[in-house]
């Protein structure tokens, strides 16, 4: 109470000075007063109360109607005072949530971390950048020690925290498959049943699963409704969309997935991505597929990791460094 009393004196003096001089300086002080009041959680109606008291002390002869109008004003400000209090408590809660989400985001990073394998035969570049704090995109590498490399790229629909939680579930069911059962069609089929049973009706997951055999240089793959990637034929210097049919995970428990296979020649590239790449916008315009391929081509002479990083930087600049969606790009290039 003591600070408020001090402020009352202060306010009275300021008011008196302003009424006499109409001086800018006094107005500036009033602004400071309001800032200070906010810091001390003083509500708007309390300030009006201070105003009324100051007026009464300065002008004891104040007409009744002014006094009455002031009381009226005081009453009308009460709701604002309540709203202000609520705002304060929401702000505290928001800070709390923010710190909890950043803890969760860190946990997600740890849970979902994957190590990009170092293979002699295949040069691998991988990059995944979340648009918000938590990433709804996901990629995972699995090696079987006999020259086979499994690559999963997925996008969980329903963004943010629920999506991230869902991704952890997927990762752990994927980790539990025995190594000999790494066939893409089998993996997608069984993940589909996991997702269908466990996830909310409006949430679904798109996933591309590929298996690279570095002994025979064959690439087997299946897709569950995932954004098509590209295959680059080095001899023809041509890109081709890897367009394979398949229903997204979690919609129908009876879905099965077809598996396809490609022979990979030296210099060929496999490009996997999420819709954060293909749905890049420049202003209101969506970028065209040719544009993406052109940019990839431009940097494809670099090691694969540098290629994906440069492609990302290109589209980040194009969108004024503001990602609308999580961005994941993976490139596999056969070396020898």
């Amino acid at each position: 109470m003591s600070t408020l009393k001090l402020d009352l004196e202060n306010y009275k003096e300021l008011l008196q000075e302003y009424i006499k001089t109409q001086d800018e300086q006094a107005l500036y002080q009033a602004e400071q007063f309001s800032k200070q009041s906010m810091q001390q959680n003083i509500s708007p109606e309390e300030i009006i109360n201070v105003h009324i008291q100051s007026l009464q002390e300065l002008y004891p002869e104040m007409p009744d109607y002014i006094q009455a109008s002031m009381n009226f004003l005081l009453e009308t400000m009460i709701s604002y005072g309540l709203a202000y209090q609520e705002h304060q408590s929401l702000r505290e809660k928001q800070l709390e949530l923010k710190s909890e989400i950043s803890v969760a985001a860190n946990m997600q990073k740890t849970l979902l971390s994957t190590v990009k394998p170092d293979l002699e035969e295949v040069d691998i570049g991988a990059l995944s950048v979340p648009a918000k704090q938590m990433n709804g995109d996901y990629h995972h590498f699995v090696q079987d020690g006999k020259g086979s490399l499994g690559i999963a790229v997925a996008d969980v629909i329903g963004k943010g925290v629920p999506a991230a939680l869902c991704m952890s579930m997927i990762k752990y069911s994927m980790d539990s498959y025995p190594e000999m059962r790494m066939d893409p069609s089998v993996i997608l089929g069984s993940l589909n049943r996991v997702v269908e049973r466990n996830v909310d009706a409006s949430m679904f997951i798109t996933m591309f699963y590929g298996l690279y055999n570095s002994n025979t240089h064959t690439f087997s793959y299946s897709s569950a409704g995932h954004e098509p990637g590209f295959y680059y034929y080095s001899d023809r210097d041509e890109f081709e969309e890897i367009d394979v049919p398949g229903l997204v995970l979690g919609v129908s428990s009876e879905t099965s997935y077809t598996q396809y296979q490609k022979k990979v020649e030296k210099g060929d590239m496999i490009i996997l991505l999420t819709d954060g790449v293909t749905e890049c916008r420049q202003g209101d315009r969506f970028i065209e597929q040719e544009e993406i391929l052109h940019v990839i081509k431009q940097y494809s002479h670099l090691p694969a990791q540098e290629t994906v990083e440069n492609v990302y930087k290109h589209f980040e600049r194009l969108q004024d460094f503001h990602l609308r969606d999580d961005f994941t790009l993976i490139i596999l290039k056969r070396n020898v």
Binding site: D155, I157, G158, K159, D200, A201, S202, M203, F204, T206, V248, V251, D275, E279, D325
Partner: peptide
């Protein structure tokens, strides 16, 4: 339409 929109139609289909 983005994938969130697609999710709405998927839940409508299930319903």
């Amino acid at each position: 339409m983005d994938s969130t929109g697609l999710g709405v139609f998927i839940s409508a289909l299930k319903s």
